[in-house]
Amino acid sequence: MFPTPIAKTSRTWQVTYQSLLPLALIMWLLPLLAVMWFSIKPASDFTIGNYWGWPSSFEGFANYYLVFAGSDMPRYLWNSVMITLPTVAGAVALSCMTGFALGVYRFKGNLLVFFMFVAGNFVPFQILMVPVRDMTVDMGLYDTRTGLVLFHIAFQTGFCTLFMRNFIRALPRELIEAARVEGVSEYQIFWYVVLPLMRPAIAALSVLIFTFIWNDYFWAIVLTQGPESQPVTAGITSFNAQYRAMYHLMSAGSLVAAIPPVAMFFLMQKHFIAGLTLGAVK
């Protein structure tokens, strides 16, 4: 193990390390802790300039209540949910199939199609912006959640295919060969042999895509406009405009917008990291 395990080092370094850990963490998260601190202060603290001192009263509950009751925030959150979940389902379903096709079959152009998915997943969004926006307008889907979902599914399929194909590649081929010898049809192989084995990959991808889509901002402002359809990342700017300079509310609002992916990460940590670090180990 590298660096040397702490248990094998001198007593002084052990104590230093143990005290450095929390200190480093606080420094690392300082900007975020500052926002948390703001979100529990009352409005009066900001008007009298008591930014960092002890809060004159703890208004955490009232502030967060106002975020939900006094703005479009619940609506934005709901939009985010209704954009994110269908995208996750759609992209994962499509890429299970593309990944299966590219991972199991040998045919001409296999690698070409695969590389096309990989390359497409890395292109800058701006090269797609004008045509995609135009097409969404033409389909009558501009400023709708559906318009956003369709694009997200398509784009995420690139990354998901990369992921699924490599995952299926690593499965033992003998399983599929054996099924074929038994006379199982290709569709049944997909459904009964491969898909059950892909469960960890599906879990990992779902959490990752959830986070990516929830946090998307660019496409939200390109394809949607108002509280009817905008997700929370775009909505937070309208929220901040509504509560301009009311830092206790803006802080609370930002934290609320950030909670779902954070919760997802802590609940599904193992899958999340497995997905993110795919390929980081040979």
């Binding site: 199939m97 199609v113 797609l128 599914i153 398509a154």
Partner: peptide, 28 residues
């Protein structure tokens, strides 16, 4: 079956990807 199956499995994903990603690049 093994020559038709990959096409069928690829088709939906490829179609989506082509319409929303590949073709727009050229259009841009």
């Amino acid at each position: 079956q093994t020559s038709v199956a990959p096409i069928l499995f690829l088709l939906p994903g490829l179609l989506f990807f082509a319409v929303y990603v590949i073709i727009p690049i050229f259009q841009s």
